[in-house]
């Protein structure tokens, strides 16, 4: 079974249970539909990182306070601001499917989440390769809303990246991203290589989460 399918199954809450054939068939079908509907776009910019306290740092004009992120960024001199989206087509596909087949809609939702993560990983690998040439190594990406990194910081991230103009990523007054299948994140870059996972599950404090990846 490929990684994408495995991830989709995890998002559907199956844990270690076996998946029935009709669900598997719907998953494979869903990836096909999503491939046709998705318009993947991403953007990143690299800024100097000025850490003024363990839990406080400055990027351009923005001041950010977060203990969790501070730990993540310790020792970093640069910071990558990153935004990615699967586009409005995916939202429309899910809305439309919700009307006719709710089981499929739920599966599309999970598959889209897996697809988005895979895309972000791919983008991050490319950025990592580019920065390695300059002797910089990436930390795990960290999104507003993780731990004590306030979701409201999403606004400034999106403004600094000009996400709306470049990749069509915007947010509502309640800080929900639109299109909904989107990510904003920061990725620290330091001169020392540290053992690091690309993904965020392992760095999350919520150990009892149904969707937590099994890393043991």
């Amino acid at each position: 079974m490929d990684m994408l399918t495995k991830e989709a199954i995890r998002y559907l809450g199956y844990g270690k249970h076996a998946v029935d054939d009709s669900t598997l068939a719907l998953i494979s079908d869903s990836f096909g539909n999503l491939e046709a509907a998705a318009g993947r776009k991403s953007i990143y910019r690299i800024f100097d990182l000025e850490q003024i306290a363990d839990d406080k740092f400055i990027i351009g004009k923005a001041e950010i306070q977060s203990r969790n992120l501070g730990r993540n960024l310790r020792g970093c001199s640069k910071i990558v601001l990153f935004g990615a989206t699967l586009g409005t087509g995916v939202d429309r596909l899910i809305t439309r499917t919700s009307l006719t087949d709710m089981a499929k809609a739920v599966i599309l939702q999970a598959c889209a989440a897996a697809m988005l993560e895979e895309y972000c990983d791919e983008c991050q690998r490319n950025i990592g390769r580019e920065l390695e040439a300059e002797g910089l190594y990436l930390r795990p990406r960290f999104s507003p809303g993780y731990g004590d990194f306030d979701i409201r910081h999403q606004a400034v991230l999106m403004q600094m990246l000009d996400c709306a103009k470049h990749i069509g990523l915007t947010m509502t007054d309640s800080y929900m991203m639109t299109p909904t299948k989107s990510v904003t994140a920061v990725i620290g870059a330091s001169a020392t290589m540290e053992k690091c996972h690309i993904k965020g599950c392992e760095s999350c404090g919520k150990k009892d989460c149904t969707y937590r990846r099994d890393t043991l």
Partner: peptide, 14 residues
């Protein structure tokens, strides 16, 4: 009980 999962629950519902 955790033997049936959301997609199956919804397929049955449909």
């Amino acid at each position: 009980k955790g033997t049936v999962f959301l997609p199956q629950l919804l397929m049955s519902a449909e």
